[in-house]
């Protein structure tokens, strides 16, 4: 910003972003899995996903770590996923934030969604690819368990209802709520010290 000097903090605001952001996502994730549950840890309507995509665009990899922690606590612990599975299952939300983060940072898109290019990147990386990979990872890993441990769902329930509810529900929330967040708040977030211009810094 012209005429203003941004104070660069080393790592502390990034770690705090991951921690506090994780807390916010955990509340919304718990709200989702408690109100519209499908199978343990999975919600038909998952309000946290709107924030996860926006956090990826704003905070880069730190938003993705916040998404992982938030999912681990809010959807995993509260939703009834065992710790041994929760550790790798929660990566689903990590991908759902990391993929839009890569899209926005790699193609230098503006999170304020000012032009067609920004919108195209939001739709491709935030709405479609992120949710596709996240839903595929999440529904598949629920059926995979460490040796001796029973999976949360059997293979026959991976596509229907788990993947379908996860993917369709997330697309709906991301397409409606995330643009509101990105257009309404990006200008403010970009002026703060927590905004990540790149994927890591």
């Amino acid at each position: 910003m012209a005429g203003e000097e941004r104070i660069e903090y080393p790592m502390t605001p990034r770690i705090v972003t991951a921690g506090v952001g994780g807390g916010l996502i955990a509340v919304l994730a718990a709200f989702g899995v408690m109100t519209v549950p499908v199978v343990p840890g999975v919600a038909g309507i998952y309000p946290a996903i709107a924030f996860i995509v926006a956090f990826g665009a704003w905070f880069g990899i730190w938003g993705a770590i916040a998404a992982y922690i938030g999912c681990f606590i809010g959807a995993g612990i509260v939703g009834g996923v065992p710790l041994a599975i929760n550790v790798y299952w929660s990566l689903a939300d990590f991908w759902e934030a990391l993929i839009p983060a890569i899209g926005f940072k790699l193609f230098k898109a503006d999170p304020e969604l000012k032009n067609k290019k920004d919108w195209a990147i939001f739709w491709v990386f935030g709405v479609f690819l992120g949710n596709l990979i996240g839903a595929a990872w999440g529904s598949t890993t629920l059926a995979i368990a460490p040796p001796g441990v029973k999976p949360v769902i059997p293979w026959s329930a991976v596509f229907w209802p788990t993947f379908v509810f996860w993917f369709v529900g997330n697309i709906l929330v991301t397409a409606i709520v995330s643009p509101l967040l990105l257009i309404g708040l990006s200008k403010y977030i970009k002026r703060t010290s927590v905004y990540c211009e790149g994927l890591i810094k």
Partner: peptide, 20 residues
């Protein structure tokens, strides 16, 4: 969903203020 979206604004602002 749009109503919940409007509710998200103060939540994010509070989160950013808390982070700082």
């Amino acid at each position: 969903l749009k109503k919940y979206g409007r509710m998200a604004f103060p939540m994010v602002l509070l989160a950013v203020r808390r982070i700082e």
